[in-house]
Design a protein around this nucleic acid. Structure first.
Lengths: 232, 232
DNA sequence: TAGATTGTTAATCGATTAACAATC
DNA sequence: TAGATTGTTAATCGATTAACAATC
């Protein structure tokens, strides 16, 4: 059997685990803020909304940061997870599309506090250029390349209408951006090596509607149980 | 073996499939808008960004709506999926917390076009009361109960700061709301039978940062391959 | 030492995928 | 009939979970 240490760059962390690490990070920050120095896997699992076996399994992919019989040091584990995710460093990001959602994203304090720095807001609409949102000036979309090169931007956020999204993504990829967070309700085609994650507000509501409909219809126990599948 | 017809309320659709149905619906709408009447599973899969085997497997849970050798009638399949999700009916929703994000959500056209009707905007801040956002007046949070009962609201959206979220959720649950879409960066505790889905903007960025970090570090082929795990 | 709690194992469960028989 | 494409099967893969040996 091959053992992989926490510094081995070839060890692989399952995607499902990666997606939960930020949740653990947030829970640890909340614990630290309330003055808690040490916690068990059970405590942290409760704070993060998962079961403790899953939490311990997830943490085991990172390394061995707890003490048997004692638990985890909150600050130490928090730092290790932050380092693993990469949020101990600064990540410059650009936001393209400064409509209502772009506005909200530019103002979102949760980005800055986790190491994401909005270095530019871009829009194709001349009417918006020069406006200041959250202390950052809105600039023409054409300036994307210069901005990305100046600030070494690796992550782009798309908050344009659906029809504009693919064009923006193509331009981002051409300029060297390799990670895209897409809020436009469109499927983006990108070359291999570029990561895209999407957030679709209406899809989440539709998933709720599906279960809600089943609750309403489901007089039967089977239907009620099924409807509960997505509960927290 | 037991066969379950598409009208059998006890048949269960896997969660992973339910989460993709809205994506198929959106892709079918795009195809219909561009004048396409019929499509193969391959066509639709491409438009939705999944592989065709998965698409056919997903559709098979709903029923048998295609024609072998021919494909799917776009309008017919679209209607069947919409009915399955429940978006052929009207869903009144309330939004609590009218900050930047609440503003953006109130203005989001993708809700209305999919059968979600924002019947009220609520906020605890007296300074916001009476303002109109997207044609809807902001009302005091205290009026939640009256509004939910008047409009028979089943779905609530939380866009408050993290600290206020649990209190809002408790109130919603007490009043009879059974589905919650949570944008606050907090884990909500709710009783069984209440569905919660969460959208966390900064978590998505952190997942991208994790992979981005590995791309930057990973001179080795193994690390590069791992970093590509979340690509579209 | 006795009690507590981690890190790991192994079983189970659910999701994905390729392949192909059914059938238009 | 021949070609095309669905719906289903079965194999594979990855994620979850309970249980417990290791160990503080």
């Amino acid at each position: 059997m091959t053992t992989r240490s926490s510094t081995d760059p070839t060890r692989v962390i399952p995607e499902a685990t990666v997606a939960r690490l930020p949740v653990y990070l947030r829970a640890l920050t909340a614990l630290a803020d309330s003055g808690i120095r040490t916690c068990s896997s059970e405590d942290l699992a409760t704070a993060a909304g998962v079961n403790s076996a899953k939490l311990r399994k997830d943490l085991s992919y990172l390394g061995s940061y707890g003490t048997r019989g004692v638990g985890y040091d909150v600050d130490y584990l928090r730092y290790q997870i932050a380092r693993e995710i990469g949020v101990t460093q600064d990540w410059p990001v650009v936001i393209v599309g400064i409509g209502n959602l772009g506005h909200a994203l530019a103002n979102y304090s949760g980005f800055r506090s986790r190491g994401f720095r909005v270095v530019a807001l871009l829009d194709a609409d001349p009417g918006l250029i020069g406006q200041t949102v959250a202390g950052v000036a809105v600039r023409p979309f054409d300036e994307l390349e210069a901005i990305v090169q100046e600030h070494d931007v690796a992550i782009g956020v798309i908050a344009t209408p659906a029809l504009a999204a693919q064009g923006v993504a193509d331009r981002m990829v051409a300029i060297g951006i390799t990670s895209i967070l897409n809020f436009a309700p469109a499927v983006l085609a990108v070359p291999e090596g570029v990561d895209v994650r999407k957030v679709d507000l209406s899809i989440e509501l539709q998933i709720l509607a599906y279960h809600e409909q089943r609750k309403a219809n489901g007089a039967g126990a089977a239907a009620a149980a099924a409807a509960d599948g997505g509960a927290a």
